[in-house]
Design a protein around this nucleic acid. Sequence first.
DNA 1: ACCAGCTACCTTGCAATGAAAGGTACTGTT
DNA 2: AACAGTACCTTTCATTGCAAGGTAGCTGGT
Lengths: 110, 110
Amino acid sequence: MENIQFKKGVLELCVLVLVGQQDLYGYELVNNISKYIEISEGTIYPLLRRLTKEGYFTTYLAESHEGPPRKYYRLTEGGQRYRDDLMREWDVFVGRVNSVIFQGGRHEQG
Amino acid sequence: MENIQFKKGVLELCVLVLVGQQDLYGYELVNNISKYIEISEGTIYPLLRRLTKEGYFTTYLAESHEGPPRKYYRLTEGGQRYRDDLMREWDVFVGRVNSVIFQGGRHEQG
DNA sequence: ACCAGCTACCTTGCAATGAAAGGTACTGTT
DNA sequence: AACAGTACCTTTCATTGCAAGGTAGCTGGT
């Protein structure tokens, strides 16, 4: 998978979903997501900052036995709503793209 | 559908697929795709230029009864290969994103 | 004490791409 | 002539992912 462009906007959704399941810190998130989708720290940290700034996450620090303190991210209520909206949009979007590429945009629809 | 970012890279695939089915001109393409995905001329024309420059399309002009001449785009062999590669990548990508957001990145996998 | 390697955080500068806004030009109708 | 519709094109901007680099703490080996 070399196509960077596919990822645009989708990483945001992945991050929102994973943090929604349990509080996570950035480094953990990178390792978690990158099992599936190639991703680097330089992508995740700015994304986490932005989503926090936009009110979708709160953060807190916790000590670690194996290194510097970890900054955990927790999904807010607004974040949950945003996540749910994005999931619906993702679903609709994939459906529409598949309409275009599998039926050639010639399929009858509303 | 307000999320612009989802579209990044995917429009390229849509354009390749549609032109692969039959020669199309830009204006027609905009109207065709925008039934499914919001899109504007300012997006399509630069994209068509780029894909032509990269050797995926050839072009020819044809007169029109109802306005200025139309510039038709035709998919090259290289374009067909690229289209097929992109389709496979899109499929894989969607599968992986769904793994992350539906199984929380905890599903066993190669 | 020193160093390597890992964990964990962060930033700057860059490239790609979609969109808004604007421009050109032809045809047909009024 | 004026206008609407078709059809092309460009410039400028915002967003976002990445490479590269920087800071700092902990662990284990020498």
